[in-house]
Write a protein that binds this DNA or RNA. Sequence first.
DNA 1: CCGTATCCCGAATGATACTG
DNA 2: CAGTATCATTCGGGATACGG
Lengths: 107, 107
Amino acid sequence: MIRDVLDRVGDKWSLLVVATLDGDTMRFSELLRHIPGISQRMLTLTLRQLERDGLVTRTAFAEVPPRVEYALTALGRTFVDIAHTIARWAITNHPTIEESRAAYDAR
Amino acid sequence: MIRDVLDRVGDKWSLLVVATLDGDTMRFSELLRHIPGISQRMLTLTLRQLERDGLVTRTAFAEVPPRVEYALTALGRTFVDIAHTIARWAITNHPTIEESRAAYDAR
DNA sequence: CCGTATCCCGAATGATACTG
DNA sequence: CAGTATCATTCGGGATACGG
């Protein structure tokens, strides 16, 4: 069950998508532009997962050309908090980790 | 750089090893027994990474038969805090996520 | 006891082309 | 525009066997 969450935290794109969505709602193509390196395919798959888990809402407008907007849910926003916690830890301890790695690799 | 941390958080065994090591120091074979499903190979690889990143210390005793003890560093213990944060979130929101999935799959 | 070395398979991801 | 389909590739990780 915690694995479940970790699989989402740990996968390559979920956290990035959620973080990018933090604050404002965005269209598919906007997300594609704002997340460097993500493929159309992976953006679709990631958004579907996040939607299924209730972290993101998907709103399609019946227009031509099509428009689809994505936004965080309340749950999604609490998930962002987790992300921030991890990010803070990463930033704080990155120097220490790098030192440790350098020392280890020196052997 | 945050990816770095997430790769550790997200991989299959690191968090489990760190959590198991929380509190007391343990031998290799003890870890193997306490973590169901982990292979010797993955335990070794995971411990090496954690050691390299400075989250775990490895102490080998020159005895026969060999004895090797693993323990968390101070940094490793702060990492456990992150794990707890994630675990709390998982436990709190698991029901909501399950509901959301069920609703999604119903379509 | 504590690993390392190989082989291997399936899942995850990327690239590319096509469509409502 | 916002996807889906398909193919090719990479890679994490399991099984197994061997070694200091």
